[in-house]
Computed example of a mutant assay.
Amino acid sequence: MLYRRPTEPQAIELPFDGEIFLVRLRRHRQARRYTLRIQAATREVILTLPPRGTVKEAKAFAEKHGGWIAARIGRLPEITPFRNGLIIPLRGVPHRIVHRKGERGTVWTEEDNNGKPIICVAGDAEYLQRRVTDYLKREARRDLEVASRAYAEKLGVFIKRLTIRDQASRWGSCSTTGALSYSWRLIMAPPHVLDYLAAHEVAHMVEMNHSNRFWRLVRKIHPGYEKAKVWLDVRGTELHRYGAVGRIPLDVD
Rank of each mutant, 00 (worst) to 15 (best):
Y127E: 10
L180T: 11
C174W: 02
K160Y: 06
A152N: 07
R131L: 00
I159G: 05
A199Q: 05
A62H: 00
S181I: 02
P117Q: 11
A168F: 05
D195K: 09
R170S: 09
W108N: 06
I221C: 06
H192P: 07
Y3V: 05
A11P: 00
G246C: 05
P249L: 06
Y151S: 04
L250F: 12
T80P: 00
R138D: 09
T48I: 12
L239A: 03
A11S: 14
A122Q: 04
L22N: 06
I73H: 03
E238Y: 01
P191Y: 06
L2H: 03
M1T: 11
V132C: 03
V252D: 13
R52S: 13
H192E: 13
R247W: 11
L128V: 05
I46T: 09
A228L: 03
G102V: 05
R29Y: 04
Q30S: 09
R165G: 07
R37D: 08
R241T: 08
P94L: 09
R52Q: 15
T109E: 14
L232P: 01
R100T: 10
E78I: 02
P77G: 10
I73E: 10
V146Q: 10
M208D: 07
R104V: 07
H204C: 02
L25T: 08
A244E: 15
R100A: 14
I79R: 14
L14H: 11
R4F: 02
A70H: 12
V234A: 12
R24Q: 15
P81A: 08
A189Q: 00
R26V: 03
A168M: 11
E103W: 14
E226D: 08
V252L: 12
M188A: 08
Q167K: 03
G178N: 08
V230S: 09
A179Y: 02
D124E: 14
R33C: 08
Y135W: 15
L36T: 01
C120G: 05
A150N: 14
V230K: 15
G123Q: 07
D124P: 04
V234M: 05
K160G: 07
R142T: 13
P50S: 10
A41Y: 01
A58T: 01
E207N: 12
R32K: 15
G53Y: 03
R24P: 02
P89G: 10
V157Q: 07
P94E: 12
K56P: 00
S169N: 12
R83S: 12
P249I: 06
N212E: 14
Y3S: 02
H28M: 12
K64P: 02
G18I: 13
K227N: 08
H240Y: 15
I97W: 06
S173M: 04
K116F: 15
G74K: 06
Q129G: 03
M1D: 11
L136N: 11
K227D: 08
I97E: 05
R75T: 13
